[in-house]
Amino acid sequence: MDILDRKILDAIQEEVPIVSRPFDYIARQVATSEPEVLKRIRKLKQEKIIRRVGGSFNSDKLGYFSTLVAARVPDEKLEKMVEKLNRYSGVTHNYLRGHYYNLWFTLTACSKQRLHELLEQMKQQTGIEELFPLPAVRKFKIMVNFKMNRGK
């Protein structure tokens, strides 16, 4: 990654504008050409630096509900349980963490009722007894961009 890659990453992480020629707009921001921006974005995608360039929607505003879930899963059962849980398309993030509650995942569903149905279903399917929804009471910050061009 060179400095131009980092500048492009910073710009497109911040926003790809909803205009007819968005990559031309980005090119102007970082003082290069539209073909150069497109070429580099394709390369950064191929190199698995960029996961996706696309729209992110606001779950709540679309009418969906989501929650963080904390669970305690015995080590020997972990692999099997994770496989079962990850099959749900509403499970979007799932991490093993070093704690008594060792499995932390996020669950999204089309209604509050569906969310609770899914949690009940998960408990039955996996036999996990300690599985607790932790919905956000208040959100102080949601941000996923990080500065790439940090003067390296």
Binding site: I12, K48, I49, I50, R51, G55, S56, N58, K61
Partner: peptide, 28 residues
């Protein structure tokens, strides 16, 4: 398409269009 997306951005249904990185590989 552009008008629809801008309207959704205005009322918060659409957060924005942007790149999402594989953070582990981007130095974090």
């Amino acid at each position: 398409v552009i008008e629809k997306l801008r309207a959704w951005k205005q009322d918060g249904k659409l957060k924005k269009f942007r790149a999402i990185l594989f953070h582990q590989k981007a130095g974090y």
